[in-house]
């Protein structure tokens, strides 16, 4: 029994580790190596050029603009999504008419709402992006959103949506929020229903109104779940590749006003003359930004915990 232990451990770890080592760790290490070369894929040989690719990135206006778009996504999308998620979860769980003895009550049909709100979460980003691309159809007569606006008498608001450089990124953000709110409603509902009713009763006895209850009872008790949700949402916002690639005009357009770093990396490597070295350097830059985000989030959430 004893001497079989190591054979068993090796037997069980061999395949997972081999797969993981070849397809995840080795590319990860190679990325740093490729980022130091001028490799374009056209020639089999690559030359080490030191940090030239990084220098190129630092002076590239397009890279900074794309990174700025990522930062905007990282700040706005999680805030709006989590706010909607919390609001709806609170409405579902505590917003209902109190029935006789119950001190807090969910609205009727909360199960139904949760099922519907969660729909986008099970659909692929591809489906969502293409569907909304159709809804945002810029034509004033054929585009659904424009037709709806006209029908309700807001014809002056009709836009070319994704075709407008000022609006395009906001339109994509709105879809990202639309796609993710349901997840947080379900997540926060689960968190809220685990808060003991006695706490709500105590707050009620002290004369707290519902909005006070929300900010002084529910939110502090959920702060851990909210912080986790923030990290998850941040990772989605940091990527945004599929949303932008599928929805935007000309892959990041109009005028590169929706371009994000992952899409820029993809275009650099697989569209524009295969500048692999440069794309790899962008990958390293992305890693740095992601780690920075993770460290900052952890710092901030720790400070929050002391406050409460």
């Amino acid at each position: 029994m004893r001497h079989g232990k190591y054979r068993f451990i090796i037997g069980f770890l061999a395949i997972p580790l081999a797969l993981y080592g070849t397809l995840v760790i080795s590319p990860f290490v190679q990325d740093f190596q490729i980022s130091l070369t001028d490799w374009t894929g056209l020639t089999p040989d690559k030359h080490y050029i030191g940090f030239d690719n990084y220098r190129k990135i630092i002076h590239d206006h397009l890279f900074w603009q794309s990174l700025w778009h990522n930062v905007l996504l990282l700040l706005i999308v999680p805030i709006v999504t989590l706010a909607f998620g919390l609001f709806f979860a609170f409405m579902l769980n505590v917003g209902g008419r109190r029935k006789g003895s119950a001190s807090v009550a969910g609205v009727r049909g909360s199960g139904f709402y949760k099922i519907v709100f969660f729909f986008p979460q099970v659909l692929s980003v591809t489906v969502i992006a293409i569907l909304w691309q159709q809804i945002y159809n810029p034509d004033p007569e054929e585009g659904v959103l424009n037709v709806i606006l006209k029908d309700v008498g807001l014809g002056s608001l009709t836009q070319s949506w994704l075709g407008d450089p000022k609006l395009a990124l906001a339109c994509i953000m709105a879809v990202m929020v639309w796609a993710n709110v349901g997840f947080y409603v379900v997540l926060f509902s689960a968190g809220m229903s685990s808060i003991p009713t006695e706490i709500y009763e105590a707050a009620l006895l002290d004369g707290a109104k519902r909005f006070t209850t929300f900010f002084k009872v529910t939110l502090p008790l959920l702060s851990d779940t909210v912080a986790t949700g923030w990290v998850y949402m941040g990772i989605i916002a940091m990527d945004a590749f599929a949303f932008v690639q599928l929805m935007s005009v000309n892959n990041g357009g109009p005028n590169e006003k929706t371009d994000v770093v992952p899409l820029l990396l993809y275009k650099t490597a697989f569209r524009d003359n295969s500048q692999y070295g440069l794309a790899a350097a962008m990958g390293v830059a992305m890693l740095v930004v992601t780690l920075l985000f993770a460290v900052l989030t952890l710092r901030l959430s720790r400070r929050e915990r002391i406050e409460f």
């Binding site: 995840v24 590319p27 990860f28 990325d31 490729i34 590749f241 992952p262 990958g283």
Partner: peptide, 12 residues
């Protein structure tokens, strides 16, 4: 912790 898009080139 790290984004898949980062390793796209070497993975290819």
């Amino acid at each position: 912790a790290f984004p898949v898009v980062m390793v796209l080139v070497p993975l290819f």
